[in-house]
Amino acid sequence: MLTTTFWAFLRHEMRESRRYSNAIVYMTFSDLRARYRRSVLGPFWLTIGTTIGALALSFIWSELMHKKLAEFIPTLTAGLILWQFISGVLGEAPSLFIRQAPLIRNLNLPLTIYPLQLLLRHLLNLLHYAPVYILIALWVSQPVNLNTLLIIPGLLLVTLNLLWLALLIGLLGARFRDLEYLFATAMPLLMLLSPVFYKPDFLPFSEMYIWLNPISHLIEVIRSPLLGHPIPIFVVITNLGLLLFGSVTTLLVFRRMRHRIAFWV
């Protein structure tokens, strides 16, 4: 009986999200226009900033890691782009519902549209980062092979994992306001503890500990095929496990807390 009720609730939420898909797209583009109003280049500042950051950091970190620049720069660029995508979603997730308080209080919209809107906006930002990697890959003659096609399922896995993370963190952030400040403090430290500027096998003495960080698996499931390498099986299994366990847990928490969000924000 409980399982039947759970799946019925899941189908209802998915149906409601599809029903408001046009509203999600409209809200996303409205948010982007508001953020870059009166800007000449708009979101292309993301492309420029990422290009400068990738080139500058590659010169430093290639020396620290004792790697050739042509070998190292695609690794760092891919890691930096993926970190900006992942950290962008996670960094905004604690205030997800708080910032939408006027809409939540006055309109009867499904709460699931807000994490979808957040994720769509950062996926659009990711499209502005992509040319940076493409240009650098062409510059260093990065090989393209069949493994490169694995980028698509890898990105899908990361996107779905970020979706349940955004919803769960948003729910908890609406109830516990300190979570926003905790994430703001933790994200810079987490960047240093994650393989953003290097691959885990660049540090063989600490590789085992790096894989204890779930962010490592989210990065490598996309970066490995970007570099023309197959995705390690344990990385795929970890991402699937996170997706299954996290989605079920988040839906249970959401089902319990969703009617209280309007009072908390």
Rank of each mutant, 00 (worst) to 15 (best):
V221M: 03
P200I: 00
K199H: 14
I222G: 12
V221Y: 09
F202V: 13
P225C: 10
P225I: 05
L192G: 09
V196A: 03
Y209T: 10
Y198W: 08
P225F: 05
K199T: 15
V221A: 10
I219P: 07
D201A: 15
P214N: 02
P195R: 07
V196D: 02
I222N: 13
L212A: 13
R223C: 08
D201K: 15
S216P: 00
Y198S: 09
P195V: 07
I222H: 07
L193E: 07
L203P: 07
L212I: 13
N213T: 00
F205M: 07
S206M: 07
F205C: 04
E220V: 09
S216I: 02
N213H: 07
L193F: 12
P195A: 10
L192T: 05
E220S: 12
L218V: 05
P204D: 00
F197R: 08
R223L: 11
I222Y: 06
P225W: 02
P195E: 07
L190E: 03
P214A: 06
M208L: 14
L190F: 12
N213S: 01
L212F: 14
L192W: 14
L192F: 15
H217R: 02
L218T: 01
F197Q: 08
V196C: 08
S216M: 00
I210H: 02
M208R: 15
S224F: 15
I222E: 10
H217D: 03
P204C: 00
P204M: 00
V221W: 11
F202I: 03
L218F: 07
I219C: 06
F205Q: 15
I215R: 10
F197H: 08
I215D: 05
L203Y: 04
F202N: 13
S224W: 14
R223E: 12
S224Y: 14
D201L: 13
I210D: 03
M191D: 11
L218K: 01
Y209D: 02
R223D: 10
W211F: 12
